[in-house]
Simulated scan of single mutants.
Amino acid sequence: MQNGQSEIHTILTPDECSAIAEIEATTSILSIVTRMAQMRFAAIAKYDNTDWVVCSVHDTGELGISAGDTLPVEITLCSDFLTDPRALLLPDISKSLRHRTRPVVKQYGLESYVGVPIILPDGSLYGALCALDSKPVAFENPDLADTLQLFARLIGCIFFGNGRSALR
């Protein structure tokens, strides 16, 4: 994993950085996501060819994933969105035969995950809005997936509104 705030500027375009700042300054989406999901970490990530690139994070649990970090997309839980655009809620990852063996789960000691794809207004997949935690979480809010999808749609519209060239 690559770390450092200066690296984020080589991975994300200035327009993407501006869009992220706009999202965080006007809605505090990531903080809201962590409260709604009762988790300590939330992120906006994009897919960049074969990588999952962290655009922005809210991390009260010090999970150790920072803006600008990258992971091979196939080892992430968010990679499911490449083939299935539905919300993914995993309250106890260790009970999921399909997901508990992903390298990212062991690398960060993950026990719970909720995520939704960020789909742009033109229908293309940009990335994911996700929350993670190292402890199992009972998702008690029946509107969690729908609310996260609304946030992801807002994020996608902001990215798209900041110019299609910013999304390459």
Score class of each variant (00 low, 15 high):
I23Q: 02
R100A: 13
L97R: 06
C55H: 01
R35I: 14
R153S: 08
G127P: 05
K95T: 10
G115W: 00
Y126L: 04
K46Q: 14
V53H: 01
L30S: 01
V105W: 00
V57H: 12
S124K: 14
R153G: 09
F151M: 09
G109T: 03
P91F: 12
E7C: 10
S165Q: 04
S124A: 08
S18Q: 12
D80Q: 04
E22W: 03
I11W: 01
E7L: 14
A152C: 13
T13E: 02
S31A: 15
L167T: 15
P136I: 11
H58T: 03
V73E: 09
L88W: 12
L154E: 02
E24M: 04
G156Q: 05
L110A: 03
L154P: 02
D59W: 14
P14Y: 00
D84G: 13
R168P: 07
R86W: 11
L148A: 06
G161C: 13
S66F: 14
G123N: 06
R98A: 08
V57K: 11
I75G: 02
P121G: 10
I65V: 03
S134V: 05
Y113E: 01
I155P: 01
D51C: 15
G123S: 01
P91Y: 15
G156E: 04
F139S: 03
D15A: 03
A42T: 04
M39D: 01
S6G: 08
V54K: 10
C17Y: 00
F160Y: 15
I44L: 05
G61R: 00
R40Q: 15
P121N: 06
A131C: 14
I93C: 07
S96W: 00
I93V: 05
S112K: 15
L120V: 10
P72F: 01
P121L: 12
Y47M: 12
T101V: 07
L82D: 08
G163D: 06
R40F: 05
W52M: 15
